[in-house]
Design a binder for these strands. Sequence first.
DNA 1: CTAATTTCTTACCTTAAGTCAATTTTTATC
DNA 2: GATAAAAATTGACTTAAGGTAAGAAATTAG
Lengths: 191, 191
Amino acid sequence: MNELIEYIKNHIPFSDEIKIKLEEIVTEKNVEKGEIILHENSQKKEHIFVASGCLRSFYTDADGKEHTLQFAIKNWWISDYMTIYTDKKSIASIESLSHSKILIIENEQLQKLFKDFPQFEILQRKNFERRITTLQKRVLSLLTLSASEKYFKFINEYESFEKVIPNYQIASYLGITPESLSRVRKERSQN
Amino acid sequence: MNELIEYIKNHIPFSDEIKIKLEEIVTEKNVEKGEIILHENSQKKEHIFVASGCLRSFYTDADGKEHTLQFAIKNWWISDYMTIYTDKKSIASIESLSHSKILIIENEQLQKLFKDFPQFEILQRKNFERRITTLQKRVLSLLTLSASEKYFKFINEYESFEKVIPNYQIASYLGITPESLSRVRKERSQN
DNA sequence: CTAATTTCTTACCTTAAGTCAATTTTTATC
DNA sequence: GATAAAAATTGACTTAAGGTAAGAAATTAG
C-alpha cells in the first residue's frame, strides 16, 4: 500500500481522505512465482499495481502457444484492457514471474474514485497517453524490425527486465521463437 | 463542422456554449487526394477529425519504405500520438487518401476545452480506451497471425476500407510486402 | 547435495515471406 | 478515349526465421 501511495504522491496532490478511501478499495496480495492472478475467460475487471516483483500478461493461442502482451515491474500497472473496456470475456491471463506484492482495484471502484477525486483523472489520462505511445511504438517495431533488431531494442529499453524474465518469454513478447532468439544472442556474443 | 457536432452529440450533452467555443478553436479544411496534412519532423500537436473521406498516418523508415500506422474514415480521429504526448519531433506523416473534409484542433486548445467543459473528458477517455484495445488487438495480430490470416482479418473487420485504400498500403499496415499480399489474394480467388 | 524439471542452445532441414524484374491491369490526366 | 502514370500481379530465386529433435546448462525441489 505504501508503494502505491508513494506513486500517487509523485503525480498528484495527496490527502488523508484519499488514503482512507484507498484503504477501503485496494486489496493487497502477496503472490508466488508462477501464480496466476487473472485467469483467461474470467470476467473480472481488475487493475493491478505492482508494488514489488514482476508480472506478465499473456494470451494463449489455439495451439497452446503463449504470446506475451506486457511485462510489469514495480510502479507499473497491468491489467487486461480488452476485458475492462469491452464486455467480452478475457482472452488473456496474468501471472507472477517472481514473488511479488500487488495491489488490486476493481474497475468499478476505480471509476468511483475518479468521480470523488477528480485529480485521479489526470493520473489516469497520463497513464493512457503513455500506454498509447508505448503500444504505438511496439506496433512500429513489429512492422519494421528484424528478430535481432527487436531483441536489441528490447534489452536496451528494458535493461532491468533481462535478469528476471526467461528468454523464451522475451521471445514470445517479440514475436519470435526461443530458438531464433538463442541464435540472435549467440551472434551478439561472437561479435 | 456539423459532422463533429453530430458526433459529439452522440456521446455527451451538447450546448450552444460548446458550439461557440468549438467554432473558435476548430479549423475546417478541405484536402485533396495525396495531400500531406501533417509532415514528418513537424512539431505540430494537432488532433484531426475526419468529417468525410479517408486519411492515413504512416512512418517512413531509413530505406524510404512506408509503414502505415492508422487509417481513418468519417467520424474517426487521427493524429500522431507520439508527437502529441511526448516532446519529440514527429516521425510520422498524415496524408489524405481521397478528397476529404477534416477538422483540426490544436492540442493546447483541446486541453483547455477539457477544463472548460469537463464532459469532454469522458469523450476523451472513451477514445483512449478504444484506441488502447485496438492497438492491443493489433499487436496480438502481428504476434500470432500469418500474412493471409492478417489480411482476411483486416478486410473482415474494416470492410468499408477495402475499396478506398490501395492494396500496397494495406500491405504496409499488415507488415507484409505488396507482392505477398497479391499472392494471398490470388489464393482466395482460387478457393 | 542430488534428482528432477525447466530453460537454453545447437545442428539440420523446411517453409513462409521477401526481393527483383518484367508484365498486366487499373486509374488518372489531358 | 488515347496516353501516361500508378498499382497489382506473376515468376524465378533468395533468405530470414520456423520446426524438430537432442543434448547442455541452469534452476528448483526434495
